[in-house]
């Protein structure tokens, strides 16, 4: 554990809590892609199957359970509790275009051809692209509420901090997880354009982010 990794995990947690609180307080999931949230729930489910097989640390176990619970709570709020506010019209990204290549890739590239390892690899690849329905939705409607952009900011910050964590781990313990690092870098690149818009529009005091 290093400071980048811890800060990254905290950013991830903050992002998820921001989104959950936004939906709960406003009693609405307008502007939120339910598809992205379903994909994230699938990411956590397929990655954290090792909760039942290996014990790493109390921190690891607790965080996994919290991420799983919060992601399912988010999906519940969007598709059940506040489903009448869900903007399915604009959440029109074709998820099969992500799932099919990701499933294919995880069968091609993995550390071991076991169900657990293939599912872990699937979760890593899927996480890299799971935000695309949300970014697509913002592009389609041309705007995002500032609270939604704060969510995306913390999610992107988490990814950037994980890269710092990998650089640190490579130099201090020789750790290098090729699958995680390559897809992590790809994932972070998706946020770069958004980061630029966030800093130039939202931070400078506009309530909504409108695309140019």
């Amino acid at each position: 554990m290093n400071v980048f990794r811890l800060a990254g995990d905290v950013s991830h947690l903050v992002a998820i809590i921001i989104l959950l609180l936004k939906i709960w307080r406003s009693r609405s999931c307008a502007g939120i892609s339910g598809k992205s949230q379903l994909l994230f729930a699938l990411v956590f489910t397929t990655r954290y199957l090792d909760l039942f097989t290996v014990y790493i640390s109390a921190y690891n176990t607790i965080m996994k359970v919290v991420f799983l619970a919060l992601s399912y709570a988010t999906v519940y709020l969007i598709y059940m509790r506040f489903r009448n506010t869900y903007d399915s019209e604009n959440d029109s990204f074709r998820v099969e275009f992500l799932l099919v290549p990701v499933i294919g890739l995880s069968f091609l590239e993995h550390y071991a051809f076991t169900p657990m390892e293939v599912l872990w690899t699937f979760s890593i690849f899927l996480e890299a692209v799971a935000i695309m329905p949300q970014l697509f939705m913002i592009t389609k409607t041309g705007e995002a509420e500032s609270i939604t952009t704060h969510y995306l900011f913390f999610l992107g910050l988490y990814r950037a901090l994980y890269i710092a964590n990998w650089v640190w781990r490579y130099h201090t313990e020789g750790f290098f997880d090729q699958i995680a690092v390559v897809s992590g870098v790809v994932q972070t690149i998706f946020y770069c354009d958004f980061f630029y818009l966030y800093v130039t529009k939202v931070v400078q005091g506009r309530s909504k982010m409108s695309l140019p």
């Binding site: 990794r5 290996v54 790493i56 965080m63 071991a112 872990w120 994980y162």
Partner: peptide, 10 residues
Amino acid sequence: LQDTHPHDEL
């Protein structure tokens, strides 16, 4: 089941 890769990151 220790043959699986130990993934210690979240």
